[in-house]
């Protein structure tokens, strides 16, 4: 009797249970949606705090002026010096991280045995776990003096050692993701390649890497966005001087370093200096997000052609 009553659809216990289930689902949904709020919060605040800035400074001046000195008496608002610092440091980091990451991924995926991989991969990932301010210390007080023995004209603060250290820091991001992608390549492709008489080296570069292209691309893109957004290494080791920085042995400032430098001082809310860090942040966000979108697009294109 009781069981029959319980199974009736409109029994209060059943109703309560149904209500509870949907309440839980709604709460979980809100938690999942919070990431959307965060992204929109970031975009909203960066845009709304930047808009007044462009009331003072024209977009043309912002993009073409070659001096950045918002806090000086004769302020100049050209993003190019900061952009050049960011690009040069990213380029140095990437030219270390992409070759090394790819080679290490190939080694771990194609040469190393299960046991070696189980040990080496987590140890390598520790490189990405070291706090970035510690890397800044390392770049300034270890790598720069070391490089000075080869390059005596190197400045005490320089973008070269910051970039190199960033590169090593990014290696595990690239190698781990690339290795996952390479290992996901089905074995029959490798066997087919060997059967055609290809060597291991040829198989890696002509079969495995092209076949894992979409995964490798996302690994590279992640590495590039890390390098673009990296802050503490360049703030500590590259010297905070916004100027057109094509010479990596000289000090320079990146977009991120500028934001930190300004935040360390006490800027009144709403001043143009305060707005300038939002403009810098917005520029950075636009660059990194467009990289992410390109990566997503490439991956989609490639996955479609795979199918």
């Amino acid at each position: 009797m009781k069981v029959a009553a319980l199974t009736a659809a409109n029994h209060p216990i059943r109703k309560w249970r149904k209500f509870k289930e949907s309440a839980i689902e709604a709460a979980l949904f809100l938690a999942a949606a919070s990431s959307v709020f965060v992204i929109f919060g970031i975009i909203f605040i960066l845009v709304s705090e930047s808009l007044p800035f462009f009331g003072h400074v024209s977009l043309v001046e912002f993009l073409t002026e070659t001096e950045w000195s918002p806090l000086f008496e004769n302020p100049r608002y050209g993003i190019l010096p900061l952009l050049s610092g960011t690009l040069v440091s990213t380029m140095i980091a990437i030219s270390v991280a992409i070759p090394m990451g790819t080679i290490i991924a190939s080694y771990l995926s194609e040469y190393a045995n299960e046991k070696a991989r189980e040990i080496l991969k987590p140890v390598l990932e520790l490189l990405a776990a070291v706090p970035t301010v510690v890397y800044g210390y390392f770049a300034l007080l270890f790598v720069t003096p070391l490089l000075k023995t080869f390059l005596p004209e190197l400045s005490g603060f320089n973008i070269l050692s910051a970039g190199l250290v960033m590169g090593v820091m990014i290696v595990p991001y690239i190698s781990s993701l690339s290795e996952d992608a390479m290992r996901a390549v089905p074995n029959h492709l490798r066997e087919g390649s060997y059967a055609m008489g290809a060597s291991k080296f040829q198989t890696i570069f002509r079969v495995v890497i092209p076949a894992s292209f979409s995964g490798m691309t996302s690994a590279y893109i992640l590495g590039i966005s890390r390098a673009l957004g990296e802050t503490m290494v360049v703030t500590v080791a590259a010297g905070l001087q916004p100027r057109m920085a094509w010479d990596p042995t000289q000090p320079a400032a990146t977009i991120t370093a500028y934001i930190v430098q300004v935040s360390l001082g006490d800027l009144p809310h709403g001043s143009i200096g305060y707005q300038s860090i939002y403009v810098a942040g917005l520029t950075l966000l636009v660059i990194t997000l467009s990289f992410n979108v390109i990566g997503l697009f490439l991956r989609k294109r490639f996955q479609e052609s795979e199918n």
């Binding site: 990431s35 965060v38 992204i39 919060g41 970031i42 605040i45 960066l46 893109i221 992640l222 966005s225 673009l228 957004g229 990296e230 802050t231 991120t256 934001i259 930190v260 935040s263 860090i277 939002y278 942040g281 950075l284 966000l285 990194t288 997000l289 990289f291 992410n292």
Partner: peptide
């Protein structure tokens, strides 16, 4: 996308 946003922009937000 959130995972790819530079950490400093979280600070600005």
């Amino acid at each position: 996308n959130l995972a790819g946003v530079p950490s400093i922009t979280f600070g600005l937000m």
